[in-house]
Every structure is written in structure tokens, then in C-alpha cells.
């Protein structure tokens, strides 16, 4: 039979072991409530796929985009290699047409989407700001391109990108947030804007 001192030490030791187990479980989170949970408001939208800029896209030779889209594509000169070009399916009205370019900068793929729009600068500006209380995620801020054009920067958690207007044209440059940084998005956007003639 264990002596009292030994029994005491054993009891204390058992208590500490149980306490350590409880602490470990609490910190590690085997209970479901401590695991990342989808709460009301956190279905984050469609899964990111920059290899498919359009739902109904058909591949084209981007150099021939004007004959299909009704306007010529603008190509960034220093932001990577062009992987593919898309327009919307045949039969799409010219007003709905767009050009979707997929680029690879060696670190990430990203999209350059170009279309005609009646969106105004006021419309774009009104989208700045992100109220997380109403389900907005990431950051939606106004930034300036090198030539002074005001752009809407949408950063994280899914993608980083910029949207801006140039006359009646709208440009949208974005890539996966994990591989396409905000700086990369800004750089590519400036590259596109500078290429507009």
C-alpha cells in the first residue's frame, strides 16, 4: 500500500495530468464549437477560378478580339505571359460582350477583363467602403493609378484586384489572394492603363 506522501503525490500528479488533458482539448478544439464554423453570413461566394473568367466563355485569338467583341483588347506589356483569351458565347449581343485575358506572371495567374459599360465614376466610388456588419469582406478602397485614374481596389480574402473606368471601357484586374498580392494587382493595373492608346 502506498505511503501517504506517495499517495498525495500520485493524486496531485493525476490531477495535473487531467488538467493538462482538459487544457489541451480546450486549446486544440476537439469540441465542434471551437473549430472554424460557417456562421450566418459566411458562404463566401463562388469558388475562385481565374482560368475561367466567363461562365459561357469561348477561347479566341486575343488579337482577333475586336472582330468579335467590337473593341480591341488592351494588353499589359510587362506583367507576365498571356495564357488564354476569351469572349462570351456566340450570339451574345455586342453590348454584353467582353474580353477576358488570362495571364501568368510566374507567381500567379490573374485575369484582365475588359468590357463596355455605362457604369459611372460615381457608381464605382459608391462601392468604396466595407461594412463587415452587413457581410462585406476584405477591403474595398479607392486608390489612384499612376496617371491619376481613380480605381476601386478590392483586396482579400479570396482575390486582390482593381476595377476602373477609362471612358466607356471598364477594366478589372484580379488574381487569387494567396498568390497575387495587392502590389501585383496595382502593378498589373498600371501596366494595363499605360497600354491604353
Amino acid at each position: 500500500m502506498l505511503r501517504r506522501k506517495t499517495r498525495l503525490v500520485v493524486c496531485v500528479g493525476a490531477f495535473l495530468a487531467v488538467a493538462a488533458l482538459v487544457v489541451g482539448l480546450a486549446v486544440g478544439g476537439t469540441t465542434t464549437n471551437s473549430a472554424p464554423q460557417p456562421v450566418e453570413g459566411e458562404f463566401p461566394g463562388p469558388p475562385v477560378n481565374v482560368d475561367r473568367p466567363f461562365v459561357d466563355g469561348v477561347t479566341i485569338d486575343p488579337g482577333n478580339a475586336a472582330s468579335i467583341a467590337g473593341f480591341s483588347a488592351v494588353f499589359p506589356k510587362h506583367s507576365g505571359n498571356l495564357v488564354a483569351g476569351y469572349v462570351h458565347a456566340s450570339g451574345t449581343s455586342p453590348d454584353d460582350q467582353a474580353i477576358g485575358l488570362v495571364y501568368d506572371n510566374g507567381t500567379s495567374r490573374f485575369d484582365v477583363i475588359e468590357d463596355k459599360t455605362r457604369m459611372t465614376q460615381a457608381d464605382l466610388t459608391s462601392l468604396a467602403g466595407c461594412d463587415h456588419g452587413t457581410g462585406c469582406v476584405g477591403a474595398w478602397t479607392l486608390v489612384q493609378l499612376q496617371d491619376g485614374t481613380q480605381a476601386l481596389e478590392i483586396s482579400g480574402p479570396q482575390t486582390n484586384g482593381l476595377i476602373w473606368l477609362h471612358g466607356e471601357r471598364r477594366f478589372d484586374v484580379f488574381g487569387p489572394a494567396a498568390s497575387f498580392s495587392v502590389d501585383a494587382a496595382v502593378s498589373a493595373s498600371n501596366d494595363v492603363e499605360n497600354a491604353i492608346t
Binding site: 458562404f43 475562385v48 462585406c136 469582406v137 479570396q158 484586384g161
Partner: peptide
């Protein structure tokens, strides 16, 4: 619920 977003990023969720 309803929601909308651009560039795969939710702007509003209600």
C-alpha cells in the same frame, strides 16, 4: 438571405 459580390469577394450579405 441574400448577397452579392465582385471578384469573388462578398460586398453584402443579409
Amino acid at each position: 438571405f441574400a448577397e452579392w459580390g465582385l471578384n469573388y469577394t462578398t460586398k453584402s450579405f443579409n
